[in-house]
Design a protein around this nucleic acid. Structure first.
Length: 591
RNA sequence: GCUGCUGUAGCUCAGUGGUAGAGCACUUCCUUGGUAAGGAAGAGGUCACGGGUUCAAGUCCCGUCAGCAGCUCCA
């Protein structure tokens, strides 16, 4: 922490991003002192702090961060004044070349003609930088260097890799402490940690990287979500279809996947002398069903849904627990409709997205992703129509759209949803895409009322995205404390003495008959230990049965997260808990 | 894929080139306990895998696999 002499000023006159950028400079100057000859990349402020990229001959290790922090404090005291100077382009270039700063020279070259070229300095450190910065480094602020990582120069994997140091800074000490506590909470809720601790899923070296094995406790969660999902889809006129995981390579040739997506696909396998492929997407299969016979305008729209498992080759360094894997199940659906139906279909999909996301307690933002600058197919007219249909559908569904300029796919515009979880982090799962490409490639038609063949539009949509990513996110969102309807075990029954084990078993039978998931802890162990275990596993309700309860047909209930006890009759409890389950409430209140 | 780091019991982790360890979990026995871990004993190891250096490798070197942080990319 900076031990500056000045007392904290009310409302320090600089925004956090300015402070952080200045602390990045301070860090770079410390690195310069400790590692002469270092070359500098960029060092901006970012969402939760700052970073700076360095080209150093030796790799840094964690403990170097402490040294650098110490040097930073020394510099902040010794040469606190930050100064800005403007130079002509040639002078600037010379200054950088004198210091051997090749990356900075490249940075200079990308500054447009006519823009001011400024250097910021303190002590014998100076940096090509447009600022702004705080005035002096001995103001009262608090910082911490956090981690090391490699980062490509200008984010380009064909360029050299630099060493990046991440850090953060705040004006108030309490803010830094709170931020570090938040990071700790993020770590505690990490789905990989909870996955092991709560016996939810695993991956296996022998099975290969990026393949998730769902354990029984998480299988239950998935089944509940699937049932919920199918229920909503059936109500809205979706029909289930099932398609194979493997097919002849020609199918993916026609769809364009080999050409446009080949690098993401698993290599061909030879069957009866012919190449076959594992599917990376479900669309080609759905199209084959559409094409199987002639289609009339009278049967459109067709809404076909499949929980389709696909396999994609993701580069090894991108794999991450359940969130980024090589085999996953999409909650996929393709809607085949006429151009006139498009807006209404979009509205229907958006309503369903909102219904599902809010059921899990997510806040969301919707983005309209428009036509990319290059490499797109289809006429302006058809793009305009599709954009209009997406906007129109959103208006009908009462959803506001932000614009993601040029973020569409090559084959059409889309609406993406970002959700905000309980820790304020954003995830992207849901996507609704207009597709003009595949109907064209497969020459899809329907016979219109005038007897002429017309081209249908396909809407491709996934709401959860994939079960792996969605459920991995849910684990973190809930911190392993699933709401009652999803909880792997909903009720733990614990006898106080072995004499009450029979009563527990009878209770368990009755609760299970109502479809509840009950853990009957009737083994001859100690009650306190069983309470500890049930608590560890985040079971929503513990029902403790002693002599009194067994006699009265009651149980002493304890709700997850509390230590209070409430005695309820079994029938009363069963009725309340069934209501709670059917409501899919996110709260644990019994009514 | 790239840069850096890591891999020892189911889990969390000790281990100085010279006999492989602890806590929790597991099994058995004892314990009958009113709301966050009762006690004892036992079992459990290809030190990720393959090669090399050495009289001797968990330990040093190389390769492979897997994981972690980030970059790039994505549901």
């Amino acid at each position: 922490m900076n031990e500056a002499s000045s007392a904290p000023q009310v409302g320090e006159p600089y925004p956090l991003s300015t402070l952080r950028h200045s602390v990045a400079h301070l860090m770079a100057s410390a690195v310069q002192n400790l590692y002469p000859g270092v070359k500098f990349g960029f060092g901006p402020a970012i969402e939760h702090g700052f970073y700076y990229d360095f080209d150093l001959p030796e790799p840094l290790v964690e403990k170097d961060l402490k040294r650098i922090e110490k040097e930073m404090r020394r510099i902040a005291k010794k040469t606190p004044e930050l100064q800005c100077a403007e130079y002509g382009r040639e002078t600037a270039r010379t200054r950088l070349l004198e210091r051997n700063q090749d990356f900075k020279v490249e940075g200079l070259e990308s500054i447009p003609q006519g823009e001011a070229i400024t250097f910021w300095s303190h002590g014998d450190w100076e940096d090509l930088c447009e600022g702004p910065h705080i005035d002096r480094l001995n103001r009262n602020f608090h910082f911490k260097l956090q981690s090391l990582a490699g980062a490509y120069w200008r984010g380009d994997e064909s360029r050299p890799m630099l060493q990046r140091i991440y850090g953060t800074a705040f004006w108030e000490k309490e803010e830094l402490t709170a931020h570090l506590a938040w990071l700790e909470e993020v770590k505690q809720r990490d789905h990989r940690r909870l996955g092991a601790e709560l016996d939810l899923f695993s991956t296996h070296e022998v099975a290969g990287a990026g393949f998730v094995f769902w354990h029984p406790r998480l299988g239950v969660v998935r089944r509940e979500i699937e049932d919920f999902w199918w229920g909503l889809h059936t109500e809205r006129g979706y029909e289930p279809i099932y398609t194979p995981h493997v097919g002849r390579e020609d199918l993916f040739g026609i769809s364009g996947h080999i050409e446009n997506y080949g690098e993401m696909m698993y290599a061909p396998m030879e069957i009866d002398g012919m190449p076959y492929r594992v599917k990376p997407m479900n669309c080609p299969g759905h199209i084959l069903i559409y094409q199987n016979r002639g289609r009339s305008y009278r049967e459109l729209p067709l809404r076909w849904a499949e929980l389709g498992t696909v396999y994609r080759y993701e580069r090894s360094g991108t794999l991450h627990g359940m969130l980024r894997v090589r085999g996953f199940t999409q909650d996929d659906s393709h809607i085949f409709c006429t151009p006139e139906q498009l807006a209404g279909e979009i509205a229907g999909v958006l309503e369903l997205v909102v219904t599902i996301l809010t059921a899990f307690g997510y806040e969301y933002t919707a983005y309209l992703a428009t036509r990319p600058d290059e490499h797109t197919i289809g006429s302006d007219e058809i793009w305009d129509k599709a954009m209009a249909a997406l906007s129109d559908g959103a208006r009908q569904a009462g959803i506001e759209l932000e614009v993601d300029e040029g973020g569409g796919t090559f084959y059409g515009p889309k609406i993406d949803f970002k959700v905000k979880d309980a820790l304020g982090r954003e995830w992207q799962n849901s996507t609704v895409q207009c597709d003009f490409n595949l109907p064209e490639r497969f020459d899809l038609t329907y016979t219109d009322s005038d007897g002429k063949p017309k081209r249908p539009i396909m809407v491709h949509r996934a709401i959860l995205g994939s079960f792996e990513r969605f459920v991995g996110g849910l684990i973190e969102h809930f911190g392993g404390r699933f709401p009652f309807w999803l909880a792997p075990e909903q009720i733990a029954l614990i006898p106080i003495r072995e004499e009450q084990a029979d009563t527990c078993r009878a209770y368990a039978q009755e609760l299970r008959a109502a479809g509840l998931r009950v853990r009957c802890m009737d083994d001859p162990g100690h009650m306190n230990k069983k309470i500890k275990l049930a608590q560890h596993d985040q079971v929503p309700f513990m029902g403790i049965v002693g002599e009194r309860e067994a006699q009265d047909g009651t149980l002493a209930l304890r709700r997850r997260g509390t230590r209070e006890q409430e005695v309820l009759g079994l029938a009363e409890f069963l009725a309340a808990v069934t209501r709670l389950r059917d409501s899919r409430s996110l709260e644990l209140e019994l009514q």
